[in-house]
Design a protein around this nucleic acid. Structure first.
Length: 275
DNA sequence: AACCACGCCAACCGCACACCG
DNA sequence: CCGGTGTGCGGTTGGCGTGGT
């Protein structure tokens, strides 16, 4: 389409960043904040294209990045989120504070894939490799019983709706990419009398314990939120409510100081952006 | 010590989307 | 509505480090 390149490549540095370049970028962003990546390099005195600067900042220089190995909890969370979201690395990264999409993507490709294969699980489909005919209901129960609590709204909502569910209905494996089902791929006529009437609340909330999936209708004439939660949890997943807060489980808070744990109704536990 | 194979990960690339005039 | 621009995302690549021979 003849689109102009993001920068004049002839005069740009490529490859690994030097300490000096890093310092220039950090100093500039500290002073002026993020944004306008296209003009940033010139303003900061860098011979880099804006995209390169953005990537360097996002994946390496940001002060809130968590360095070091992934924990077992993070591993499991990534696996569960991937089973629901597929290769939506940015969405997954959004649920792992301090981790970047690139980092998670690399980690998935180098570690988790292998880990799943060693468990006899296909990393793409999250199905047992030997069991080609796993019933979708048992699959969904597996995912839920192993404990994700997802609650999506906000900026992720749009993107999640577009996400292709990995868990698919048996016999409907090819063409259900466009339905506006939840990421668990569970929309059905039974659940929605009129699918168009429903707007999913897609704010993602993750707690590692066995909680119910929750969905909300913004349409007040439909089921109220409590009822929809009940149906969602009970009908589809045999609703469990023994939630354990992620913050407490990974040791960031004690129960009494965790705002999640102060919320009485576990169905409304929302992920507090840890850190 | 030299070579090779492999794994890891930072960085690049192309595309899609959002926004704006 | 359309085209240009900026930004973000996901797939891929290439260089470096490490372990084995």
């Amino acid at each position: 389409m003849g689109r102009s390149p993001c920068c004049e490549k002839a005069h740009m540095n490529k490859g690994a960043w030097t300490k000096e370049e890093d310092q220039l970028l950090v100093d500039y962003i500290r002073k002026h904040g993020e944004g306008c990546w296209r003009s940033l390099p010139r303003a900061a005195g860098l011979q880099r294209c804006g995209k390169s600067c953005r990537l360097r900042w996002m994946n390496y220089l940001r002060p809130d990045l968590k360095r070091g190995n992934f924990t077992e909890e993070e591993d499991e969370l990534i696996i569960k989120l991937h089973s629901l979201l597929g290769n939506k690395w940015s969405l997954i990264a959004g649920r792992l504070p301090g981790r970047t999409d690139n980092e998670i993507k690399n980690y998935w490709n180098t570690h988790i894939k292998r880990k799943l294969l060693s468990r006899g699980i296909d990393p793409n489909t999250h199905r047992l490799i030997n069991e080609s005919t796993v019933s979708p209901s048992s699959l969904q129960n597996d995912i839920v019983n192993e404990s994700l609590h997802l609650d999506f709204t906000g900026p992720d909502q749009e993107r999640l709706v577009k996400a292709e569910p990995v868990v698919q209905e048996e016999g409907n494996n090819n063409n259900n990419n466009n339905n506006n089902c939840t990421s668990s791929g569970t929309t059905s006529d039974k659940d929605f009398q009129n699918e168009d009437d429903w707007v999913l609340n897609l704010e993602l909330s993750v707690g590692p314990a066995a909680t119910t999936y929750r969905y909300e209708s913004t349409r007040k004439t439909s089921l109220d939120s409590a009822e929809s939660n009940r149906r969602w949890g009970s009908e589809l997943y045999g609703g469990r409510s023994d939630a354990v807060c992620l913050c407490c489980r990974i040791g960031l808070f004690r129960n009494e100081s965790c705002r999640n744990c102060r919320i009485s109704d576990v169905r409304t536990i929302r992920e507090s952006r840890i850190l």
